[in-house]
Design a protein around this nucleic acid. Sequence first.
DNA 1: CGGAATGAGGAATCCGGATTCCGTATCCGA
DNA 2: TCGGATACGGAATCCGGATTCCTCATTCCG
Lengths: 184, 184
Amino acid sequence: MSTPQRRKPRTDAERNRDRVLEAARLLFAESGHDVPMSEVARAAGVGIGTLYRKFPTREALIEAIAERRAGDLAAAGHTFAGEEGQGLAGFLFHVGEVLAGDRGMSEVIEKAMGSAEPQGETRDALLAVIAELLDQARAQGVAGQDVTAEDVNMIICGLAAVIRNAAGDWRRYVAVALEGLRPR
Amino acid sequence: MSTPQRRKPRTDAERNRDRVLEAARLLFAESGHDVPMSEVARAAGVGIGTLYRKFPTREALIEAIAERRAGDLAAAGHTFAGEEGQGLAGFLFHVGEVLAGDRGMSEVIEKAMGSAEPQGETRDALLAVIAELLDQARAQGVAGQDVTAEDVNMIICGLAAVIRNAAGDWRRYVAVALEGLRPR
DNA sequence: CGGAATGAGGAATCCGGATTCCGTATCCGA
DNA sequence: TCGGATACGGAATCCGGATTCCTCATTCCG
């Protein structure tokens, strides 16, 4: 039947895939997603052809990277939920820290937290953590009962924009937002 | 000496300029700034050459439009300052209303409120109104004494992003932000 | 009205990144 | 080690928008 049990991928192929992923991660973090594909290939020490075989579109490459990083964020979120108070606060500051050091990620997050259609894991995983942190925050009385995950979403979306545009002190932004979520 | 007092511009030249400005305003509002220049020219019923003579770069065109609209926003801001309470709140909701109906403007505002370098009037005019509204808000006790214009800047920057990405209800975002600015 | 001067139009050209394609090199399993 | 399968490299090509430039039309002034 469908026994596509082909030979396992060549070792150099996997190595190249990793190289591309790593190089792209750095480039995107540094300059955002509008880096020429040829740049990525060169940085990875790989031919353009190879890059395209691994990732047929820029989107595919971005997703591959974003998914992992988003996963890390989500994991971090769970950690904060585990600690004592201010889990949500800790998480938001952490997100800011991460986005401040990764332009590409800030672009992804802004879109992901914005539109509700696309993304799969990237968005859902984060939504889950946010819900968790929010529940905890409400229970601890640091967030109003009427606050929704959607609210936090918007705050994060805005945070990404604030950081990407190098506005003022984003920590201040987070502080104001947290204050605004407090019970009345 | 420098008596460039040349003949005054032809009437049709001015008419075309207006057409371009108007067409561009609509297109940019509808689809943002990444509309092909040729599109703009076509929509304006003008040749590409003409468009380029009027506005040598896309930037020039965007600025010409943004400056006016920003001026309107600033004016509206002063109006809100004139009214009784909640001037700042009224202004922020107004800004949201405007940005929600003008993608191009949301892009401009996001950048303008972000970086502190470029823009001339666009940024400065708004900064002035914000300062005014903020003073009033502090006096009325709806904003903490420690709140700065920069804080409001970031909030607006985030607001633009939230709206542009069609996140949730941006009014909710504004409400949270305002709450966060309250005196402790 | 006549003829400079100014402006319009838009085809031709430039440009840079995206994507394809195929000969060559490398790897894997026997 | 051998031979086919798999992957690589990167030049060639595609593509679409930006920008130029020259000819022709319109406006203005005397």
